[in-house]
Design a protein around this nucleic acid. Structure first.
Lengths: 203, 203
DNA sequence: AAACCCGGATGACAACTGTCACATCGCTTT
DNA sequence: AAAGCGATGTGACAGTTGTCATCCGGGTTT
């Protein structure tokens, strides 16, 4: 029986080693190489032609999303699984657009990783069900560009007056935008609004 | 030969499982239990009396730092190793104050984890050398425990009134603590204060 | 052209926030 | 015992924030 060859890419060395150890405990899976960033992963993928590439998103040199797109183009026989901390609908969409076959969260039980590898290897897609749901009912980004700019600055601790000056708007207008953003997000003040927006990947 | 009994606490389930798998590959180390947050870790530590507790810092319910302090008090025979993403001097300092025997970054090669476990088990301390240097010349944490509690909640977007209720203090007292924290940090409002404190690892 | 929508502005008002001076109260230090 | 200290509370005051109704001017739609 031939083992499924997996390449793992992850920038935190400790986590990379741990994920590799986790996959190696499976009898039908072998980790053929490890990469500490996207560029390295692309090189190693070319060399090893793995069946599956498991990759983080936020990495130096090249993000997992770019990596996925490159791999689809150059190594169509290698299937990509995104493994990330971020349950952001925006990331999920971009990952799928980039041709990723799986999107898995680091929050999920570790047993699911090997499962996902097997399923994707069989040609199935694996998308975190909670995230898919959340992406569905958290809906699209409700913030306008102005609201985003302003909420971002408010989240840094800037006052309405400072933001007004920075954006060449009146202070009252800033307050209006913030009020609108707070109400859209169901928050009770600017800080909570910023926190919620960040959590959903809208900031 | 008796294996070193290790309890691992980490809120990202996938990483938790992977770290456990990593440690299990060592012949002289056994993972006796796993916890998904600080409170669970404390309970399990009481039950299993592990030799070593490897814990993340940022976790729900109870942070790794609080956990370290509790463990020192209740289970002095268990030694704590902090394993975290954050190279923040303030975290290191607080970890050591809380009685942690090791402070390791997730950036480091995965082989160092087992090493650290062995060394700490032998009674040595293991602290990331770069971080130790940085911690030396950055100032001490200026915040009191109360200020930290309150600033933390303020940073989540809670109002003075909500925080007062939560901590059974008067609203005026909350405002006083926040005012003090803002002035200590040289910020101009609670949001900026929280941001600064977080960046330095004081929250 | 009339009707509408959009980004932006205004003013008023209540609520919340930040500051400060000053109490209390219990616990140490002298 | 007196003094000092730290944690907490109070009251007052000014400044900031959140909400709302309304207004204005420039494009679009009809």
């Amino acid at each position: 029986m031939k083992k499924i060859q997996v390449l793992v890419a992850e920038d935190q060395a400790m986590v990379l080693g741990a994920l590799a150890a986790l996959l190696e405990t499976e009898p039908d899976i072998a980790v053929c190489a490890r990469a500490a960033n996207g560029r390295e992963a692309l090189t190693l993928a070319g060399k090893h032609k793995p069946d599956i590439l498991v990759t983080d998103i936020e990495m130096p040199e090249m993000t997992g999303l770019t990596l996925a797109a490159e791999v689809r183009e150059r190594l169509p026989q290698t299937r990509v699984i995104i493994l990330t901390t971020f349950a952001r609908p925006g990331y999920l969409r971009r990952a799928l657009d980039a041709g990723a076959k799986g999107y898995l969260l680091k929050d999920r039980p570790s047993a699911e990783l090997a499962d996902a590898v097997r399923r994707v290897h069989q040609g199935l897609r694996v998308v975190d069900p909670d995230l898919a749901l959340e992406a569905w009912d958290s809906g699209p980004d409700p913030l306008t560009e102005r609201e985003r700019q302003i909420l971002w600055r408010a989240g840094e601790g800037k006052s309405s007056g400072e933001i007004a000056e920075e954006l060449h708007l009146s202070e009252g207008t800033i307050r209006n935008y913030l009020s609108e953003a707070i109400s859209k997000l169901g928050a009770s003040n600017r800080v909570e609004a910023a926190r919620l927006a960040r959590a959903r990947g809208w900031l």
